[in-house]
Design a protein around this nucleic acid. Structure first.
Ligand code: SF4
Ligand code: SF4
Lengths: 134, 134
DNA sequence: TTAATATACGACCGATGTAGTCCACTTTCA
DNA sequence: TGAAAGTGGACTACATCGGTCGTATATTAA
């Protein structure tokens, strides 16, 4: 099916929440979890992935938390998704895990049109940046 | 993740295969399965769903099989997908299973932009019909 | 120095969905 | 009448998903 994972949704909600704060202000995972009723541990994982991919910056220790690592305009939604979903970010297997992973690749007659659809979707996500959803 | 199921891919390959034949010609599930190396039983299920939704017509008994039920131009890809995937055809839960199924719906801040993305994707699939992928 | 608060990370679990298989049944035609 | 075809349900193995738990580490306020 075509479905965003909850992790991605939580990530979008969280990073948007951070973006609504004055630039540089630090927000804790707990605050976000409480605000939206998101499981704290799960949200933490998501924020850690966003941190590792450089979209947000973490501050450890007491009075720590997260802040945006760049201006919202420079954070397209596509980057948020790919930061959270490791592989599997394409609508078909051959486009994300490689052609040889699909057993019917050589005779498949639909990969060409689906590649166009994929490009369409990618464009939709990469042209939308964080500043547009706050 | 955003991924088409194998059933949908098989359905697309199959219905496209049928569409390449002269109009009205009957194709068996076995022929399609053999041609593309798709598991026969699984393909049968998919073809049955396409039949129930009226996209293809089945002919039972010996020398039976499947043929298109309408001209290819009148079969948008979106219909093929929704015929095979029952529910879960939206990128987020609240758009396909209803708002109250998501625990954070009332405080969710991203449903509005994601609804736009959904509309974008739907348009991509509904404007593409079978005649364009043969 | 220490206690409190916060992130980092990996292991784990149950529920659900996916891909595929199996089998019994019905329909149709040669 | 029997072979060939679709119909339909149950079933399995596996992967993923959503979520939880425990522990380690970093930072800072007291
Ligand atoms: S080759 Fe065809 S069937 Fe295989 S993953 Fe790509 S689009 Fe799907
Ligand atoms: S309400 Fe928000 S979090 Fe819930 S399914 Fe819709 S978009 Fe996702």
């Amino acid at each position: 099916m075509i479905r965003l994972s909850k992790k991605v949704e939580y990530g979008l909600i969280a990073i948007r929440h951070i973006a609504t704060k004055p630039a540089g202000e630090i927000v804790t995972a707990k605050e976000i979890a409480d605000t939206y009723g998101i499981p704290y541990e799960l949200l933490s994982k998501v924020l850690q992935k966003l941190t590792k991919s450089g979209l947000i910056a973490s501050h450890q220790g007491m009075r720590g938390g997260y802040a945006l690592a760049r201006p919202p305009v420079e954070i397209p939604v596509s980057l948020i998704i790919s930061a959270i979903e490791g592989t599997r970010q394409a609508i078909v297997q051959c486009l994300s895990e490689g052609p040889q992973t699909c057993t019917v690749f050589t005779v498949c007659t639909i990969k060409s049109p689906l590649t166009k659809v994929q490009a369409n979707i990618e464009r939709a996500f990469s042209t939308m940046n964080l500043s547009e959803i706050v």
